[in-house]
């Protein structure tokens, strides 16, 4: 598996991280090094082995379905880079 600059650009896009055009070849090279290391996993016989979902065998706890928290409007907005009139503010998303 070899990653080219087009794949690196696609991954950066999926991850929503802006990568400048001239940085893509080096990034693709790093991916190849890391993925080359990961390729070792292909040596392992995993036939019939279940993928791990929980490292400790425990059932998720259940609780009564009721409101236990809330009414913290100001606290929720406190750390926002831009908040106005009780809302988070983002660039326009609809024309």
């Amino acid at each position: 598996m070899s990653i080219d600059t087009a794949t690196a650009a696609k991954v950066a896009k999926l991850a929503r991280i802006k990568v400048e055009e001239d940085a893509l070849p080096a990034l693709a090279q790093e991916f190849n090094t890391i993925l080359g290391f990961i390729e070792q996993l292909n040596e392992v016989d995993v036939e019939g082995v279940e993928p791990m979902t929980s490292v400790t065998p425990q059932r998720l706890k259940r609780r009564v379905d009721e409101v236990t928290d809330g009414n913290q409007h100001d606290k929720v907005l406190k750390n926002a880079p831009d908040a106005r009139e009780g809302f988070f503010v983002v660039p326009k998303v609809v024309e």
Partner: peptide, 8 residues
């Protein structure tokens, strides 16, 4: 595959 190896 990695999660299967983790099981092992």
């Amino acid at each position: 595959r990695a999660r299967r190896v983790r099981t092992l």
